[in-house]
Amino acid sequence: MSSLLVAEWRRMVIDLVRYPLETVSMMVVMFAVFAGMFFGAHYLTAAPISGPNLSGVVIGYTVWTLVMNASGFMGYSIQNETQNGTLEQVMLAPWHTVQIFLVRGVMDILEMLLPVLVVLAALIALSGAKLDWRLLAAVPALMTIITAWGIGLMMAALALLFKRMNQLQLMIQFALLFVIIAPVATIAGAWGHVLGVLAPLSVQVSVLHATLAAAGHGASATLWWEAAADMVLWFVAGYWLLTAADHLARQRGIIGHY
């Protein structure tokens, strides 16, 4: 597994360094977005937004961006490889298809997270603001991303079979936005509760919110367990679906088709 990680890490670094304008532009955009969060509220509310509120906004936005990437990148990678004519070589590598695209998904998150951390550090230094960050919040944040990877594996499965799926990908990301924003996890009633637990990302986001909440009570043990179970469910479903799609694509002989 380490050689796969090394191979993809090196390719990611080369890509970042090879196209500096792209990398710098990405960081400028991030800087502008976070600067808007740090300073924008000051102009709107005539009072600086700080402490837990600022942390909630920054972490929420960061996790949301990572979720969008985690759920979309693997499918995009397969589409891109097919279009460029390199997918068959990738599939000839001595790794399970899930391993290859999952590692790529992890690298994509790192590629996104590293500049975010640099930009945030710069903004904190410039503004003197303080982020009320709790280490424990990293756990639900990671659970949210792992759940999104599960969805990403499902998108990769669809991309392997259907190749072109940009519109579907947009629709699914829109649906994810809904389940994250809407209080699905708190729907009343037994069925509502089941729906809330089964819906992807909703429970993990609830745990994240509770962990970051100013009151500091944190999420209940039940919510933690539900978030963990939901994460495992979506990740295993993604793993299974991509494995099945890989089998079907080889059966139909359509791996390299575009």
Partner: peptide, 18 residues
């Protein structure tokens, strides 16, 4: 797969940006 290598027709086989 670790015991075979292939150059496939109709595929690029390589990353053009690298």
């Amino acid at each position: 797969a670790s015991r075979l290598g292939a150059v496939l027709e109709g595929s690029r086989n390589l990353y053009w940006r690298l």
